[in-house]
Amino acid sequence: MRDLHFPLNQTQRVRLEAALHELQTLAPAAASAASVTVADSIPVNQEDNILKGHGAADHDGEVVATLCGVVERVNKLVYVRTLRRGILSLFRYKPEVGDIIVGRVIEIAPKRWRLEINFTQDAVLMLSSMNLPDGIQRRRTAVDELNMRSIFEENDVVCAEVRGFQHDGSLHLQARSQKYGKLQRGQLLTVPAYLVKRRKQHFHHLEQYDVDLILGCNGFIWVGQHVLVRENTELKEDQHKLSDEVDTFTSIETRKHICRLANAVRVLSALGFILTIELIIQTAEASLSSNVEINAMLGAEFYVQTAEREARRRADLVRKKNGAR
Score class of each variant (00 low, 15 high):
2 R>M: 08
5 H>M: 13
8 L>K: 09
16 L>D: 06
21 H>W: 12
24 Q>K: 15
28 P>M: 06
39 A>V: 00
41 S>V: 08
45 N>R: 04
53 G>I: 00
54 H>W: 03
60 D>F: 00
64 V>N: 01
69 G>P: 03
71 V>S: 00
76 K>G: 03
81 R>D: 04
87 I>F: 13
90 L>M: 11
93 Y>S: 03
102 V>T: 02
107 E>D: 11
107 E>L: 11
107 E>N: 07
109 A>Y: 06
115 L>G: 00
118 N>W: 08
124 V>D: 03
126 M>R: 08
128 S>P: 01
131 N>A: 10
131 N>K: 12
135 G>T: 03
137 Q>T: 08
138 R>Q: 05
147 N>F: 09
154 E>A: 14
161 E>M: 14
165 F>R: 15
168 D>Q: 05
169 G>W: 10
171 L>K: 07
173 L>Y: 04
174 Q>L: 14
175 A>N: 02
183 L>Q: 04
185 R>D: 07
187 Q>F: 08
188 L>Y: 02
189 L>V: 00
190 T>I: 10
192 P>T: 01
195 L>T: 00
196 V>G: 05
197 K>M: 08
199 R>E: 13
204 H>L: 05
205 H>A: 05
218 N>S: 03
221 I>R: 10
225 Q>W: 04
226 H>G: 02
232 N>D: 06
239 Q>R: 12
239 Q>H: 12
252 I>M: 11
253 E>P: 01
260 R>K: 13
263 N>I: 02
264 A>T: 06
266 R>W: 04
271 L>W: 14
274 I>G: 07
275 L>G: 05
276 T>K: 15
278 E>Q: 12
278 E>K: 12
280 I>H: 09
280 I>L: 15
291 N>D: 09
294 I>H: 05
295 N>T: 14
302 F>N: 05
304 V>F: 06
306 T>N: 08
308 E>S: 14
310 E>L: 10
316 D>I: 06
319 R>C: 04
325 R>L: 13
